[in-house]
Design a protein around this nucleic acid. Sequence first.
DNA 1: GCTTGACCCTATAGCGACTATAGGGTGTAT
DNA 2: ATACACCCTATAGTCGCTATAGGGTCAAGC
Lengths: 138, 138
Amino acid sequence: MSSTHLSIGDLSRATGTKVETIRFYEKNGLLPQPGRTEGNYRAYEPAHLNRLSFIRRARDLGFSLDQVRALLTLSDDRSQSCAAVDVIARAHRDEVERKIKDLQSLKVVLDQVIESCHCNIVADCAIIESLAPTPEAS
Amino acid sequence: MSSTHLSIGDLSRATGTKVETIRFYEKNGLLPQPGRTEGNYRAYEPAHLNRLSFIRRARDLGFSLDQVRALLTLSDDRSQSCAAVDVIARAHRDEVERKIKDLQSLKVVLDQVIESCHCNIVADCAIIESLAPTPEAS
DNA sequence: GCTTGACCCTATAGCGACTATAGGGTGTAT
DNA sequence: ATACACCCTATAGTCGCTATAGGGTCAAGC
Ligand SMILES: [Zn+2]
Ligand SMILES: [Zn+2]
Ligand SMILES: [Zn+2]
Ligand SMILES: [Zn+2]
């Protein structure tokens, strides 16, 4: 009950997280339930702010909430081997890598499709044609 | 009522689309409602197959369902200018480009973070540290 | 003392694009 | 007759929030 308590709005401003999102993290077990004031307001400790910052940085790096949960659990048990941390981070990086490759080959196709449109009306549009099923063959 | 009718399973196999997804497209106005057999089974015409193929190719290229709907409408009105088609395709390509760039800069950070972990226990783990809020500064 | 306004609360529904489940009916082959 | 593949509707779940409805709390100003 010291004066160091923070309101949900304080956490929101400090981390750039919407208030609803903070409540969402609590409901989903990422952020522990804080104490309450007499008026039933959430009263956070500085540790909550640290934890929320951690969550936001991990989310900014694209980790899923499940991965963030796992990273939080690992970071709480500071004597453990960090091999599990490494596994999560590498799995995520691999997925990012895969997504980049997928999008790059997608862009190649989109570039070709867009480039091929030298027409005026939809009937001749090469973009539409590239989507339509083989128009001549049965 | 000719013998050319196709069941939902036929469309599913022909396009690699799950049956539930086909029903979902119908409910969301992408695929027109087909006739029904006496047993209340959907009975598709070849035109439905063409339309579903169109949808799938557009989805494979990453267009949103809203974009697919717009492309379908445009492709139905074959005398129209294809400028609107071009706008949709370029907007989508620009977004793909943006996503690639975002993921590439994300990957740079992830690579750095992962590379920095030469530790054994979580207490020293550079990955966890990179997520935790500045540990010394208040 | 009373109102205004910023802030907070819970509970619920919505987004996109499906996917899965429950609880049935149909059609055909053996 | 019964097994089985297939089909039907309706509803809820996924992910990571975001938005809404319908309230309660608290400090400041008049
Ligand atoms: Zn306290
Ligand atoms: Zn064109
Ligand atoms: Zn027919
Ligand atoms: Zn480490």
